[in-house]
Simulated scan of single mutants.
Amino acid sequence: MSSVEATEPRPRVRMYPHHVDYSAMSMEFRPFAMFMHPPNYKSTAVNTDDLGLRVQYASGDKRLDWRTLKSDIDSCDVLVGNSSLFGVDCSSDKTTITHYLNENTAARDLPTVLNVGIRGATSQQELVIFQSLRRFMPKIRKIVIFSGVLGATSIALPNTYIHPDFGIMSEEAYNLDLLSKQYKAERFDRLDRALHKFHTWIDAKLRAHRRLERMVEFYFGEPVSEVARPEPDIETKFDTVMDLFTGDVGNWMALGRGLDADVHFVLQPVINWTTKPLTPAERTLFDLDLKAGYYLDRYATSEFHQKYRDRVKAICGDAGMPFHDANEWLNDSAVANQTVFVDVCHLTDFGNKFLADKLRTSILGA
């Protein structure tokens, strides 16, 4: 058993052995986009290209090269989103939503679909990353934003970094530490590296002796109360996230007009946001995550879904952006007894295939 697998919940790894390939993939800092998958990551289930995007294939099983897209294809549709669109925990690069969408597109005379799914991306990051990558894209016909769960979790989780004017940062402690380590690794000279290792050693020694650590904090530490921000209540966070989302929707619509492309929003599926009964596998893993303390009981509920969906739908409607709720698609009797979720929002291969079919018939063309 690998060290990664040893830290993962055993039932999840038993059901989905490829889960460890995703757990082993870290992230890397990127200017303005905050973070991106590492380039040229290789594993059985998930692989990335030199940009850090998931490896993709066009109709006819030809691997896509983002740097030659404009000469390789005439037009495209673009799916933008977070880890669910990226395809976390699906079994291979050929079982993502976009891969299923690209099957036989040539025979159907439909554009190639590009996957701009980034793990952990917030609404603002989705927009910035799309703008960063747009220079590689040929003529864009439609943009589909397959998203929503990061806004919900930022409302539900305590101490989320939400700047009311500029946006949200998910997993800020992890990602800021990521930036710090990457900067030190890439920019520090030999003396800087030596000093950093020395400071790290001192820190470890102090933390091993709590009384000494407290003494150093007392004499040399700055009062935290001078800079600490009070945690806003959940209603205030909800309104702030929706206000930020309103700005993002307006920017997407302006981009769509400039590109002469239709823009749609699809609220991604979340456990308990659909009336589909949970299968034994879904129930086992959801209960496991509930016990882990991920605050799922704050947002993975039908009550939160209704409130969140109604506000998102209204914001999209006011901007003229077509809104779709993928959770309603999963109310279909055809999936009642099928395992769709591997956790609160990531999907099985079957779930990806089913949603690809719905996206095709509802938005992209059959």
Rank of each mutant, 00 (worst) to 15 (best):
S2P: 03
S3F: 14
V4P: 05
V4I: 10
R10K: 15
R10T: 14
R12C: 06
V13E: 09
R14C: 06
M15K: 07
Y16W: 08
P17N: 09
P17Q: 10
S23L: 11
M25E: 07
M25Y: 09
M27P: 01
F29A: 12
R30C: 02
F32I: 12
M34Y: 07
M36A: 02
P38Y: 01
N40E: 14
A45I: 02
L51I: 00
L53D: 12
V55K: 07
Y57I: 02
K62Y: 05
L64F: 00
L64N: 08
D65H: 12
W66E: 00
C76Q: 05
V78G: 08
G87F: 09
G87M: 08
S91M: 03
D93E: 14
H99W: 15
Y100L: 09
L101I: 01
L101P: 07
E103M: 12
T105N: 12
G117E: 03
G117N: 07
Q124E: 13
L127D: 03
I129Y: 13
Q131Y: 00
R135D: 08
F136M: 06
F136P: 10
R141V: 01
K142N: 15
L157A: 15
Y161C: 04
M169W: 03
S170D: 09
E171D: 11
E172A: 15
Y174V: 08
L179C: 04
Q182W: 05
Y183V: 13
E186I: 04
F188W: 07
R193L: 08
A194Y: 11
L195N: 09
K197M: 02
K197W: 02
K197F: 01
H199F: 13
A204D: 10
R207K: 14
V216P: 08
V216L: 13
E226A: 06
V227M: 11
D233A: 06
I234E: 13
L244I: 13
G247V: 06
G250D: 08
G250A: 13
N251T: 13
A254W: 01
A254K: 15
R257G: 14
D260C: 12
H264E: 01
V266W: 09
V270K: 09
V270M: 06
I271L: 05
K276G: 14
T279M: 04
P280L: 07
A281R: 14
R283I: 00
L285T: 14
Y299S: 06
F304S: 05
K307T: 11
D310V: 03
V312I: 15
V312D: 07
D318P: 00
A319N: 00
A319G: 04
M321R: 05
A326E: 01
W329D: 11
N331T: 10
D332E: 11
A336Y: 01
N337L: 05
Q338T: 12
Q338A: 07
T339R: 11
V340Q: 15
V342Q: 06
D343K: 05
C345L: 02
D349R: 01
G351D: 13
F354Q: 10
K358A: 04
T361F: 02
